Amino acid sequence: MKGSISFFILAIAFLMGCTSEEVSKKEVNKETALPLEISNTVNESDIQSIDWNNTATSFNTGTRSDMVGNKLKIGIIAPELKAKKIDKWMWHFWGIKEGKLMIVGYNKKSSTVSPVLYDVDSKKNYWTKDGLGSEVNGADSHIPSNVLLNESGKWAFLVYIDNELFDILVMDLK
């Protein structure tokens, strides 16, 4: 009788352990760990709203034919994006003339949230950059930056201006 009770208690403890392990796996997979320094601007719903099929395309602005992005919303002039390589990008914006830029990278496969902008002097990524520039290449404003991402795959670049989601670029990183 004591053996049956011990076995029963042990079996219940084992089943409870499996259940709580399954629940915590689901909770971890559902949540996107947003870094504290951006959590006041970026919402989980911004990341959940990414349309992975709406990838950035090449387009002509009338003055440039090598722009990549979402036509007449946001475009970049840049070399082919590669992981672990610092590249210079010129960001172009339509419909906005000034503001503070914040770029949040989200990797689809790893669910990693990362800063995209890169400072070559400090050798660190950062989230925000002040001062959109004047009209250029048919866009209402622009800003240059260095970018660096440490893993390949499909990325969404959530672009915020003055803490408001402006647009999302979806691109493949080789």
Rank of each mutant, 00 (worst) to 15 (best):
K2E: 05
I5K: 10
S6C: 14
S6G: 13
F8Y: 13
I9D: 04
L10T: 12
L10M: 12
A11F: 14
A11E: 11
I12E: 02
I12K: 02
L15N: 11
C18S: 11
T19L: 15
E22K: 10
S24A: 06
K25P: 06
K25N: 08
K26W: 07
K26T: 13
V28Q: 03
V28E: 02
V28N: 04
K30A: 13
K30P: 01
T32H: 07
L34P: 01
P35S: 07
E37L: 10
I38Y: 00
S39V: 05
S39D: 01
N40L: 15
N40E: 12
T41L: 08
V42D: 00
N43H: 05
S45N: 11
D46N: 11
I47Y: 01
S49A: 07
S49Y: 00
D51L: 07
D51Y: 07
W52Y: 09
N53K: 15
A56F: 02
T57M: 15
S58K: 15
S58H: 13
F59Q: 08
N60D: 10
N60P: 05
N60R: 08
N60V: 10
T61R: 06
T61H: 05
R64F: 11
D66V: 14
D66R: 07
M67H: 03
M67G: 04
N70R: 15
N70P: 04
K71C: 07
L72C: 10
K73N: 10
K73I: 15
I76R: 04
I76A: 09
I77T: 09
A78L: 14
P79F: 08
P79E: 03
A83D: 00
A83Q: 03
K85M: 11
I86H: 01
M90H: 00
F93E: 00
G95S: 05
I96F: 06
E98D: 10
M102K: 11
M102Q: 07
V104F: 02
G105S: 09
N107R: 03
N107H: 04
K108R: 12
S110K: 09
S111H: 05
T112E: 03
S114K: 03
P115Y: 02
Y118S: 06
D119G: 07
V120Q: 14
V120M: 13
S122N: 04
S122C: 06
K123I: 02
K124D: 00
N125I: 00
W127C: 05
T128F: 01
D130L: 14
G133R: 03
S134C: 12
N137R: 13
N137P: 04
H142N: 10
P144Y: 05
L148M: 09
L149E: 00
L149I: 08
N150M: 13
E151A: 08
W155G: 07
A156S: 03
F157H: 08
I161A: 09
L165A: 08
F166M: 07
D167R: 09
D167V: 02
D167A: 15
I168C: 06
